[in-house]
Design a protein around this nucleic acid. Structure first.
Lengths: 166, 166
DNA sequence: AATATCTTTCACTTTATTTTGAAAGTTCAA
DNA sequence: TTGAACTTTCAAAATAAAGTGAAAGATATT
């Protein structure tokens, strides 16, 4: 396989995978592109390589910065902004875990807590509370796991997992 | 909060959350509805409670069966099919982990392996291989984690996590 | 302060996904 | 074997999401 083929396939695969996890395709493709780029890329570079519009490129690059997955990079003496991805994939994973936890798990935990406050006393509400209770414990588990990932050092983390889950 | 309010909020929240993780809203809402239902529900019950069409209900109920999250339930002497959800939430989590692993992680691991086979020798392809390598290790980690969840007994799992990640 | 270069915004278009509902299919009791 | 009761399918419609591009907004340079 040539580099160009592999690159195309990688960007494509990354985009597809992201879609299945509720992330938009362009954002994932931009991320993929920057991950494998040896040099910082400008908005125009991205537009050209992915064949997307300026607006689209701009919006999703902002979003990636917002997620902490890429950074602005200014070249001395140039107006144009360039972008570099965080290349340490374990840092990327930690960052994603952190953000998803903040944006999704925490709000859900709050709603679940709120839902425990049902005050009638029927068979339905008994069943309901049981289910909410179960979900809360699973959500708590997910939260701890993500938190562990967030806090972990790469090697420590792998080590622990190998010990426990081999 | 009354039961009806809580129920509505739960179904709504579950649907929204699912969307963020790439699962369609109706499917999640059906799942939520069945999770808290003390009795098996028919397609018509679901149609009425969620205000959705027959086709939509049918399609997503099949899909939930396919994911192993709900089961057909036949009442003696009735033609009509009823559905019950798996109520043990840890089993649900394990089932989801299992399916996502099968449907998503495994294919990705294959593609990553394939992508290692780039055969040119430029700075770009060196960077590329480094990135793919990193992603492979994170993906492997995700795979092991999901696999641990799949294999784990509830109490064992919680215990291990408390030990390691407290 | 005028101009050039680059970035951001946003109303609109396009594409993708979801949902509908009517028709076709299935099953079973009579 | 018929037809009533129920399920499944699928083309079309509706909805939602993503993407476009031109215009407005910044910012640096002369």
């Amino acid at each position: 396989m040539t580099y160009d083929e592999a690159k195309a396939k990688f960007i494509q695969t990354w985009g597809t995978l992201a879609t299945q996890w509720g992330i938009n395709r362009t954002m994932a493709q931009l991320h993929a592109l920057l991950l494998i780029a040896p040099e910082p890329l400008s908005t125009e570079d991205a537009m050209e390589q992915l064949q997307i519009s300026r607006g689209n490129a701009n919006m999703n690059l902002r979003e990636l910065i917002d997620w902490g997955l890429i950074f602005r990079h200014l070249k001395p003496g140039e107006r144009r902004e360039y972008f570099v991805a965080e290349k340490d994939i374990w840092k990327v994973a930690r960052q994603v875990a952190k953000e998803r936890r903040r944006r999704e798990i925490k709000p859900v935990l709050e709603v679940l807590h709120e839902l425990q406050q049902v005050d009638d006393n029927t068979p339905e509400s008994a069943e309901f509370k049981r289910v909410i209770d179960g979900i809360s414990s699973v959500a708590g588990f997910a939260d701890s796991t993500l938190n562990a990932v967030v806090r972990a050092e790469e090697n420590w983390l792998m080590g622990q997992f190998m010990k426990v889950f081999k």
